[in-house]
Simulated scan of single mutants.
Amino acid sequence: MQKTSDYYVVKQKAVPEVLLKVVEAKRLLESGKAATIQDAVERVDISRSSFYKYKDDIFPFHDTAQGTTITLSMSIEDEPGLLSDVLKVIADFGANILTIHQSIPINGVASLSISVQVLSTTGDVSRMLETMEERRGVRNVKILAKE
């Protein structure tokens, strides 16, 4: 029986430093700023063995999100225009909104679920989520599903 791979979405602050350095080394190679793997790993200060061990297992979220539907869950304060601000962030990043569901606010906070189609022209999804979280009145943003 073949074992399937499990995938997790975690925030950058929860990822060990060595994995972040592997991502950076891959970026240096892809951009041409490092000509060899040895050059890339020296620049980010990791061993070649660490690079080879993790290179196929870590990648920025945006690299795998294109062409998919992402369902987001968030809690937002009941303030005029806040939903519009959140939707504008999605539009500014070039994603396509498929569904929106907002609960009736309880104690001044509403639960919001949005399904978004990530297109080839969509900007960095991780940055889009960060931009939403930075809005005053947005309590949290989580990815519920990726299809």
Rank of each mutant, 00 (worst) to 15 (best):
F51K: 00
I90F: 02
E147I: 08
D57R: 14
H62G: 07
Q12A: 15
H101Q: 14
D56Q: 14
T71M: 09
A91T: 14
V125L: 09
L129C: 08
L129G: 00
V138W: 02
S5K: 12
V41R: 01
A145V: 10
L72F: 04
S73I: 03
F93L: 10
V125S: 03
I97G: 08
V15T: 11
L28C: 10
T121E: 09
Q117P: 04
I70A: 03
P105E: 09
I37N: 04
S120N: 14
E30L: 05
T69R: 08
V86N: 00
Y54R: 01
Y52P: 05
S50K: 10
I143R: 01
S84G: 11
I100Q: 00
R43P: 07
M74V: 08
V41K: 00
Y54I: 01
I97L: 12
V118T: 01
K33T: 10
V138L: 01
F51C: 01
V109G: 07
T68F: 11
S31I: 07
A25H: 00
T64Q: 14
N107C: 13
M1I: 11
D6Y: 10
S31Q: 10
K88H: 10
V86S: 00
R127I: 06
V18R: 04
V44D: 02
R43S: 05
V141I: 13
L29A: 11
I46T: 04
Q12D: 14
D63A: 11
E42H: 13
V138R: 02
I114E: 02
E134K: 08
L72T: 02
I104W: 11
S103W: 06
Y54W: 10
L29F: 06
T69A: 13
R43E: 08
A34L: 05
D6F: 09
A25E: 04
S111E: 12
K55H: 12
S31R: 07
E77H: 13
I143Q: 05
Q2D: 15
E134P: 04
T71V: 07
E17N: 15
Q66F: 15
K3R: 14
D92F: 08
V18N: 02
L82M: 06
K53I: 04
G108R: 03
D78L: 01
R127Q: 13
K3F: 15
D45W: 06
L82G: 00
D63K: 15
G108L: 05
E133C: 05
L87M: 11
V138I: 07
M1S: 13
R135Y: 03
M132E: 00
K53S: 05
A145K: 14
M1C: 10
L119C: 05
E30H: 02
A40I: 04
S111V: 09
A91W: 09
F93S: 03
T122G: 09
D57P: 04
K21M: 03
A145G: 14
S31H: 05
I106L: 13
A145E: 08
T122I: 00
S103F: 05
K21E: 04
H62M: 07
I114L: 01
I37R: 02
L82D: 00
T99G: 12
Q117I: 04
Q2N: 14
I106G: 11
L82Q: 05
V23C: 12
